[in-house]
């Protein structure tokens, strides 16, 4: 089943073309890595998918909601980890407070955040911040998770851990899209690697 599909996606900033007629699709439980030179438009592509950037023409179809893990995570600095994880669900009012609390506790356990759940983001390590950001994205139960340069602030050891986390998520039927310039990580993690070049998406053998 296709989870994301773009049809002739076209995006420009002013006169500069960034993405030209991109046709892309992903399957359920698939891990796709997108690489390319910096400034080529990888992040813009993710932002278009997430609705943070308006596209100039074309269409994006998604089967469910999208979770987005920002390069610098964008945790809310005035809320502790647990509040950070719960606040999207509390806003959306999808469950009652007790259920939300139970779910967040499960996520905290799953991502090994027990000891920092009452800490502010300023006091977290890079890895902890990333896991908190993933937990926060998961509480809204998305079908697709987008990662923007997830390895940029991680030690090599933590990169391995991240690979495992992502693979686990894929097993749980999440579709994963990773923008990265770390080819090694992409090879380790992704089922399919795409290269963004000259505003086009090219396939790359794995």
């Amino acid at each position: 089943m296709k989870t994301i599909e773009t049809i002739n996606l076209y995006k420009k900033f002013g006169e500069k073309e960034i993405l030209k007629n991109i046709n892309f699709s992903s399957e359920n439980g698939e891990i796709i890595a997108i690489t390319g030179k910096s400034g080529i438009g990888k992040t813009t592509f993710l932002k278009c998918l997430a609705g943070l950037e308006k596209i100039d023409s074309g269409a994006i179809k998604t089967s469910g909601s999208i979770g987005y893990i920002f390069q610098n995570f964008n945790l809310f600095p005035h809320l502790v980890v647990k509040q950070n994880i719960e606040i999207p669900a509390l806003n959306a009012k999808i469950y009652d407070k007790r259920t939300i609390s139970e779910i967040s506790e499960k996520l905290i356990k799953q991502f090994k955040l027990e000891c920092v759940q009452n800490c502010y983001p300023a006091n977290l390590s890079g890895g902890q911040k990333q896991r908190a950001a993933i937990a926060r994205a998961l509480i809204l139960n998305p079908e697709i998770i987008l990662f923007d340069e997830p390895t940029s602030s991680l030690d090599p050891e933590l990169v391995k851990e991240l690979t495992e986390i992502i693979k686990k998520l894929a097993k749980q039927n999440y579709t994963i899209l990773i923008v990265t310039h770390d080819i090694e990580f992409a090879k380790q993690t992704a089922d399919r690697i795409l290269v963004l070049e000259d505003c086009k998406m090219l396939g790359l053998l794995t």
Partner: peptide, 27 residues
Amino acid sequence: VDKGQNEAAQVLGFSKTQALFKILLPQ
């Protein structure tokens, strides 16, 4: 306030008012 805060609120389904009162104003 970092522009990313607003983006994070947006992808996490906050309405504009929710983002203003719960994310931006406290900061």
